[in-house]
Computed example of a mutant assay.
Amino acid sequence: MIRKFCEERGPSPLLKQVQAIWLDYKYENWRLYCFADEASAQAFLDRFPGEMFDPKRDRED
């Protein structure tokens, strides 16, 4: 369903696999779909569960 959704909307998003490590040392694997614009990302969230991620705001350097 995700692949079909992305194909219908135009250029496919960049897909990244990341591992989140929390302060309590809990690990989580996440799949990030990186869209060129916020409107495409919001359309994705309207259709599929998830959370908005802004790399400039939501990660440590």
Rank of each mutant, 00 (worst) to 15 (best):
L14N: 07
L14P: 00
L15R: 14
E7F: 05
F48T: 14
M52H: 02
R9T: 07
G50E: 00
R59G: 04
E51Q: 13
P55I: 01
I2F: 01
M52W: 05
M52L: 15
E38P: 08
K26I: 03
K4Y: 14
Y27P: 00
R57Y: 03
I21H: 01
E38L: 10
D24T: 11
R57P: 00
R47S: 07
E60A: 09
L32P: 05
A41K: 02
K26F: 04
A41C: 12
L45G: 01
Q17W: 10
E28L: 05
F44A: 08
F48A: 08
D46W: 06
Q17G: 03
E51N: 13
D37S: 13
A39M: 07
C6P: 01
A39T: 03
S40C: 08
R47W: 01
A39Q: 11
V18C: 10
C6D: 07
G50Y: 02
R3F: 09
D37K: 08
N29T: 13
Y33R: 06
E7L: 14
F5C: 06
Q19Y: 13
P55G: 02
K4P: 00
D61S: 12
M52F: 14
D37E: 07
A20T: 08
K16M: 09
L15E: 13
D61L: 11
D61N: 11
N29Q: 10
C34I: 14
L32E: 05
D58N: 09
W30T: 02
R57E: 05
D24E: 04
P55V: 02
K56A: 09
R3W: 06
D46A: 09
E60H: 09
E60Y: 14
E7C: 00
Q19G: 04
K4E: 14
F35S: 11
E60K: 12
R47T: 03
